[in-house]
């Protein structure tokens, strides 16, 4: 079975104060459809850069990235935008909802950029909101919702476009422990329903919820056992 994410020998460096910093070097990773993978690492490990790569927010310097069968590394900006829209559902640490739009309208947004008609958009948005347990809060504005509820809306937004991958960046980072548990439970439920989830965190407890853990350190990837992660093992 072809992996849904297939990254080979990916390297990314950037300029910082006149110096070239290698954020990730020669990283390879395969993730199969239906996986729940946690990528864990401390704050300057290259974790964020790697997430930006997986999320198609940026292009690698070298290496290959096949996302759901599409070669992403060569894409132009507008193609990347389309890929983000169709293939990836983002869940952010700070929820990143648009504060001037209601819960329902926030969920509609990716569908709007996808070009769906009003009727379809509403149908999907209602269903997504129900799926995350917020039925009846369609007209609430983000500031009328608790942190946990806002993150649920964000998850509903990520789900709305039915992307093959959910990419969560510290989804519980801004929540208290009880709410964190609820959000993680929701993600586990979504995993059980067949969603592929990539979870990026610095918290081992959170990472432990995943079915597979990959560690990132100094721009290198290791499988949870502690050895250097070898892509060949997955094939």
């Amino acid at each position: 079975m072809t992996p849904i994410i297939d990254i080979e020998h990916m390297t990314k460096s950037y300029e910082m104060g006149g110096e070239t910093v290698v954020a990730i070097s020669d990283v390879s990773l395969q993730i199969r459809a239906g996986d729940f993978v946690a990528i864990i690492g401390p704050s300057v490990s290259g974790k964020s850069t790697f997430m930006n790569m997986i999320g198609c927010l940026d292009r690698p310097d070298s290496g290959r990235y096949l996302l759901d069968g599409e070669e992403v590394e060569k894409m132009k900006d507008h193609q990347l935008a389309a890929v983000r829209n169709r293939k990836i559902g983002f869940i952010f640490q700070n929820f990143n909802l648009l504060t001037k739009l209601s819960a329902l309208e926030n969920i509609e947004l990716p569908l709007l950029y996808k070009g769906l008609k009003k009727k379809e958009r509403l149908e999907i948005a209602y269903a997504s909101l129900e799926k995350v347990g917020l039925k009846g809060r369609e007209r609430h504005m983000p500031n009328q919702l608790s942190g946990g509820q806002q993150q649920r809306v964000a998850i509903a937004r990520a789900l709305a476009g039915q992307p093959p991958i959910l990419l969560a960046d510290e989804p519980t980072g801004a929540l208290d422990s009880k709410t964190s548990q609820e959000i993680l439970q929701l993600m586990k439920d979504l995993h059980r329903q067949g969603h592929t989830i990539v979870l990026i965190t610095h918290d081992m407890e959170v990472a432990n919820q995943a079915s597979r853990i990959v560690r990132i350190q100094d721009g290198q990837l290791f499988e949870a056992g502690g050895e250097r992660y070898e892509p060949a093992a997955v094939h």
């Binding site: 935008a81 947004l109 950029y113 476009g161």
Partner: peptide, 15 residues
Amino acid sequence: KEIGIRKAIGAQRKD
């Protein structure tokens, strides 16, 4: 920030 969010969830430049 709003522009960033919109772009992340798939807004094109022309949008």
